[in-house]
Simulated scan of single mutants.
Amino acid sequence: MEERFLTVNVVTPDGLVYDHHARIVVAKTISGEIGIMPRHAPIIAPLVIDEVRVKRLDSDTHVDWIAVNGGIMEVRDDVVSIIADSAERERDIDVSRAERAKIRAEKMIEAAQAQDDVDQLRRATVALHRAINRINVSKHG
Score class of each variant (00 low, 15 high):
2 E>C: 02
2 E>A: 13
3 E>D: 09
3 E>M: 11
4 R>A: 09
5 F>V: 08
6 L>Y: 00
8 V>G: 02
9 N>F: 03
10 V>P: 09
11 V>A: 01
16 L>R: 03
17 V>G: 04
18 Y>A: 00
21 H>W: 06
21 H>N: 14
22 A>Y: 04
25 V>P: 04
25 V>Y: 07
26 V>Q: 10
26 V>K: 04
27 A>F: 14
29 T>P: 05
30 I>Q: 13
31 S>G: 11
32 G>F: 10
32 G>Q: 08
36 I>W: 06
37 M>C: 09
38 P>W: 05
39 R>Y: 12
44 I>Y: 01
45 A>R: 04
48 V>M: 10
49 I>N: 11
49 I>Q: 09
52 V>L: 08
56 R>N: 07
58 D>C: 00
58 D>V: 01
59 S>L: 09
59 S>D: 15
60 D>A: 12
60 D>S: 05
61 T>W: 11
62 H>N: 14
62 H>W: 13
64 D>P: 01
66 I>F: 11
66 I>N: 06
67 A>R: 07
67 A>T: 08
68 V>I: 10
69 N>M: 05
70 G>S: 01
71 G>C: 01
72 I>Y: 03
72 I>C: 00
73 M>C: 01
75 V>T: 12
76 R>T: 15
79 V>M: 02
80 V>Y: 00
80 V>E: 01
80 V>C: 04
81 S>T: 10
82 I>W: 06
82 I>P: 10
82 I>F: 04
83 I>M: 14
84 A>D: 06
84 A>Y: 01
91 R>G: 14
91 R>L: 11
92 D>E: 08
92 D>L: 07
95 V>E: 11
96 S>H: 08
97 R>L: 07
102 K>F: 08
102 K>A: 12
105 A>I: 12
107 K>M: 15
110 E>W: 05
112 A>Q: 01
115 Q>E: 14
121 L>W: 00
121 L>E: 08
123 R>V: 13
124 A>T: 09
125 T>E: 07
126 V>C: 08
126 V>L: 12
129 H>I: 04
129 H>V: 13
130 R>K: 13
132 I>F: 10
132 I>E: 04
133 N>K: 06
135 I>K: 02
136 N>Q: 10
139 K>F: 12
141 G>V: 12
